[in-house]
């Protein structure tokens, strides 16, 4: 199992009586592409933070890639995250004043998955396959279009050859045409590299790309839904 959650309970320390997460049991198998539908404010961000090991639950066990995150130190979790989990956000996926290559290098800096020469080789392969023209590789990313930035974000997320890719509303800043080409690229890249994909969005129309679709409100059984 790539993800295995059991009896997860979570609330923020300063709001003890408003639970954010209550997940009795949930899991994802290797190679699965799962679409989780849910508006923001349903514990979505908290769940994703937990899967990437930034937050730990108050109760329950988080198991990612057969690793009990609860048992790791924060240093080990940082390393684990860098090595095994790719992450693509809605926006601000890249350091704006670095260029595409530097952004990807930065991500590989925290991981020991690849050697230096492998990184530069892998970078060109990824950027080329994601349709980023070579002339844009050395421009500060803030000068590039949002569509391009999101595609570079995929390359950044995949550089350490993660087994799990988490995408958090990556298309919401894109227009329709860009969104469709982004999705096609993302799905084919994930397919090619045999990566398990967890995709969270409020846009139901994207569910057509996935073989497993879930609703966050079914997954997360907390009564009140006023999470931050």
């Amino acid at each position: 199992m790539v993800i295995q959650l059991s009896n997860i309970r979570f609330s923020y320390p300063n709001h003890k009586d408003t639970p954010i997460l209550n997940i009795p049991s949930w899991s994802m198998a290797e190679g699965e592409h799962c679409f989780i539908h849910g508006p923001s404010g349903n514990g979505k961000s908290t769940l994703l933070n937990m899967l990437s090991g930034i937050l730990l639950p108050n109760e329950g066990v988080v198991c990612v890639l057969d690793q009990h995150l609860n048992n790791l130190t924060s240093r080990q979790r940082n390393k684990f995250r860098a090595d095994n989990i790719g992450y693509v956000f809605q926006q601000f996926n890249l350091i704006p004043y670095l260029d595409a290559l530097e952004n990807i290098q930065l991500a590989s800096y925290f991981s020991s998955s690849l050697t230096k020469s492998e990184v530069s080789e892998e970078m060109s392969t990824l950027l080329t396959s994601l349709n980023i023209p070579e002339s844009d590789w050395n421009k500060p990313v803030r000068t590039l279009s949002i569509g391009q930035q999101q595609r570079i974000a995929i390359a950044r997320a995949l550089i350490n050859t993660p087994k799990l890719l988490i995408a958090d509303e990556p298309t919401s800043a894109l227009d329709n045409i860009n969104r469709d080409s982004f999705m096609t690229l993302l799905m084919s890249t994930v397919e090619k590299n045999n990566i398990t994909l967890l995709f969270v969005s409020h846009d139901m129309s994207l569910s057509q790309y996935f073989n497993r679709v879930e609703s966050l409100s079914e997954l997360n059984q907390v009564e009140c839904s006023n999470a931050s």
Binding site: K79, R81, A82, I95, L106
Partner: peptide, 16 residues
Amino acid sequence: TSEIQLLRVIGAPPAF
């Protein structure tokens, strides 16, 4: 803030 968040997510430890 978002830059710091990004760095944390790609695996940067707080000491970084």
